[in-house]
Design a protein around this nucleic acid. Structure first.
Length: 289
DNA sequence: AACGCTCTCAACCGCGTGGCT
DNA sequence: TAGCCACGCGGTTGAGAGCGT
């Protein structure tokens, strides 16, 4: 049993447990000293050749462990903190396209690691599938993502843009950046989501996620190839009318917007889905099962 | 305050692949 | 061609933080 209580089989494909024991290799959480040693070594010698790097740097770690620590944590361009709405949207779309190809997905999210995206998917997306009592790989769940949550995210991105644009402070996103074509998706700044003055949506109502410029997403994001041009068209009367899933899981007659604001609720932020969304989806699922 | 449960995410594991000898 | 080795990927685990009772 290692220091973390994890499995005691071979720790990597080229180093046996007994060899590790003989070499007195450390496992488990990295210390600050180890981090500094690794960073200093890579700053001076560059990365790669991880096994020899670990030895030469004097780290009692496997090369594999060093590589992982560097790539997932110490690399200077690693982005830490909450996954933004745009990133969430991108993850959903890319996952629907490629499945669990985490590293491939990560390539399209600068600064994010495959591990982080994988964890995000497992902890957030799979959790919601579980709540809905459906399989995350089922067509039903995929359709729900595609026809409900993804447009919903687009909408929230717009809304967040409006809030930010309306605010005189922390203008991460200029108001002018939120109209026009959004990577093939027409995004219109006249979102039907009311601004915070009329709804009580507070400045942090979309969670602690930082809102990055849509243009960043637009550079990387291509919406589903078989979507009509107006698929996600924002606006008062717009995209929801087009959101009829092939399997009929989304019923446009159900007033998503009204549902959301009934009871004068504020948004309760859960980066991807809020309480009303869950309620709505559960109702919707129970109607379609 | 104490306890138990849930959630998050850093780290580990096994395996596949490709380069080198 | 076979064997070795390094690397990278996707799956899994478990410590610790957070939260409710």
């Amino acid at each position: 049993m290692d220091v973390n209580g994890r499995g005691s089989s071979s720790s990597n494909s080229t180093t046996t447990q007994s060899e590790e024991d003989q070499m007195d290799l450390r496992r488990g959480p990295w210390t600050v000293e180890e981090d500094l040693t690794l960073m200093n070594y890579i700053a001076n010698h560059g990365e790669g050749r991880w096994n020899s790097l670990a030895r030469c740097a004097g780290l009692k770690r496997t090369g594999k462990s060093c590589r992982l620590r560097w790539l997932n944590y110490l690399r200077p361009d690693v982005r830490r903190g909450n996954i933004t709405l745009e990133e969430q949207l991108l993850i959903l779309e890319l996952h629907s396209r490629w499945g669990n190809r985490w590293s491939k997905i990560a390539q399209h999210l600068p600064g994010r690691t495959d591990n982080e995206i994988k964890n995000y998917w497992r902890t957030r997306v799979q959790k919601h599938a579980k709540q809905l009592k459906c399989d995350v790989n089922s067509k039903q769940f995929k359709d729900t993502m595609r026809y409900l949550w993804m447009p919903r995210l687009v909408e929230r991105i717009q809304a967040a843009s409006n809030v930010v644009g309306a605010s005189s402070s922390s203008t991460v996103l200029p108001p002018t950046a939120i109209s026009g074509d959004f990577a093939g998706v027409h995004v219109n700044s006249t979102s039907c989501i009311p601004d915070n003055s009329s709804t009580g949506v507070s400045s942090d109502s979309f969670g602690t996620s930082q809102v990055s410029p849509l243009s960043d997403l637009a550079e990387n994001y291509n919406f589903p190839v078989n979507c009509p041009d107006n698929y996600f068209q924002g606006g008062q009367a717009g995209y929801s009318d087009t959101l009829i899933s092939p399997s009929g899981y989304y019923n446009p007659s159900m007033d998503f917007q009204a549902m959301e604001y009934q009871n004068n609720n504020q948004y309760i932020s859960d980066n991807l889905w809020n309480v009303e969304d869950n309620w709505f989806l559960q109702q919707h699922f129970s109607n379609n099962i």
